[in-house]
Write a protein that binds this DNA or RNA. Sequence first.
DNA 1: CGGATTTGACCAGCGC
DNA 2: GCGCTGGTCAAATCCG
Length: 339
Amino acid sequence: MAEWGLHAIIRSPKDQLYEEANHQHHDHEDYFGSIDIKKEYDQALVFCFPHLFDHHHDHDVATTSTMETVHVTDELNQLYKPFYNPIPPPPAAVDNIQIIHHHNYHDSDQEIQQDQEQEIKNFSGSASNTSQLAPKLKKRKNQQKRVVVQVRAAGLSSDPWAWRKYGQKPIKGSIYPRSYYRCSSSKGCMARRQVEQSCTDSSIYILAYTGDHNHPQPTRRNSLAGINRNRFKATPKSPVNNDVGKTVSKSKGSPFHSPTTISASSIEDEVIQQPNIKEETMFHNNCDDQGHTMMPGINDEDYVVFSDDFFEGLEDLGGYKMESSSYYSSSNQYPHVFC
DNA sequence: CGGATTTGACCAGCGC
DNA sequence: GCGCTGGTCAAATCCG
């Protein structure tokens, strides 16, 4: 049961992908090396989702199967974009989550860790003011651990963590601004989230998670004040931001003058209007009993469960990367290129 | 009043 | 070195 469920979710597409890759594009053998991608991938799945293969967790698998798809992609999709024409998934598959892209490492994890440790050492001498030092402990951009997912609006709002917005920027090449959130569940938490609306499909939001939470997942959202500010009130200040033309913005003449924020509150305004979405599921405790992170989905049945080990384990597999095995998508879009 | 959002400014990384 | 761009800061503002 577990296996067919996962096959339905993942295996079939990635089977297709690696077959495409192996049979059609030997030019890229250097990229893959000589590893058995399929085998390694399956091992990775077991390694990273052991509970899904555990018969004690059949329920998890059963519910996961309703999610229809977990899309994971990366350079491989880019690599084979001109050649690979994925079979469109069932319509329901467009909903929920697409894990696009996990990292921006250019160096190895070990090197990054060493860098971090060294940076910490460099500052440890005057650690009495860690709050001021914290911003200086930034990784270089290309070393930031990064998880990118695509979600529908509902998936975005169902994120269990409490996020506080701290910035918004227009992004070159996108008509939508990018909003920056930090975790407000705990002071000093370095977790960050970026929310960006796909300009190819305004109903899709691209979430980029960076940094790690330094605290347990909240049992409930503990910062609802801000999140709920506009939930039950469709004020002109918080329009649903699916259509730039409808955007209401403050008249400040800023060059940014961006559409009103893609904020949790505005998104939830939209979600509430969707009759199929149960509001209470958006605030459900998404932490499972094993401490796995549960990514947002439409409802409880649609959460994707994975841990950091998931990606780390996959990256350790013979040099190929987790996101190397995936397919896309209902619109044949390769999510790296959102515009 | 406390906490969240907004938004212009600032800063650092990166490419040329 | 310079300019562009993205990420963050922080004061102002908003809202319950």
